[in-house]
Amino acid sequence: MKNSLKFVIAGLMIMSLFASGCANQSNSNSTGASQNSEKYPTKPIELIVPFAAGGGTDLVARALAESMKTELGKDVVVINKTGGSGAVGMNEGLHSKADGYKLTMATREIVSLPLLELAPFKTSEFTFVGNVNRDPAVLVVSSKSKFKTFEDLVADIEAKPGKLKFASAAAPSIYGIPFAQAANLDFITVPFQGAAQAVIEVLGERAEFGLYNPGEVTAQIKSGDLRPLAIMAEDRLEGDLKDVPTMKEKGINVGWAGTFRGLAVPDNTPDEVVKILEDTIGKAVKDQKFIDFMAKQNLFIDYLNAGDFEAMVEKDMKAMDPIVQAAKKQEN
């Protein structure tokens, strides 16, 4: 009897611990909200990266967070929330408190996933604060591969329709589909979770080619394990990859395909908070440390302020439409 009484008391104590814990949390939140309109930010800011640590988006986010921290004087903490090709993290960012303490890395998936009906949100539910980076896709093959030029590869895909394999970093591939459409090619797309896994397939020669962002294959290109054949962009890149031709030069009428990376917040975030964040990003992209880091990793800075970013996203929603139609057709 005595023992069970002790247990009940212990149980009650634990429950009360919980209750008080929850109560504290809600208190601190409400006071935080009333303060932040005065001098945002008053506490560390979380930056949700909807992809795994170590990936391209993660790297941009971490470098940006570091430079933003210098500007804001508060920590910007990167949190990786993976799943659903980015939908899980973006959804969490969208449904968090609109007080500017939870930012979301907005990548091109913020446009593609809702169009593909793979996300429980609409692109327009976000307020776009600023874009920092825009990378084209680069087509790579293994350096042991018989394909020495872009023409070699295209000729072989044409000769053997539906036989060659493309290791995609995500499903559906927003790089593979426009490439196939523009060049009227038929190849098999094998989806992987992230470029790291997909690149192994190209290195191991199970897949004939891959389309990734330059930053994702820098190490392997530098070491000579991968051979870049073409990029999907209007103009050639600067830096290490300046000798790689664009697909357009090679006579394929395909425009830019790649990803962008910027910051977004829920659309009911106070304007003054958005403004502070927009200015911070504008300054952060001019930080020499940020510039050096991005250049070294073959990540290309393309700063757009809130208005321009929003316009770019809207334009991309239209550009993405034929890709989405093709992806849906593939599923059926």
Partner: peptide, 19 residues
């Protein structure tokens, strides 16, 4: 290891054969 990979890169090193 992906986070270690990130750490290399954040410190200006590219992990891989060239390292």
């Amino acid at each position: 290891i992906a986070i270690l990979f990130g750490a290399f890169i954040m410190h200006g090193l590219t992990p891989g054969p060239t390292l």
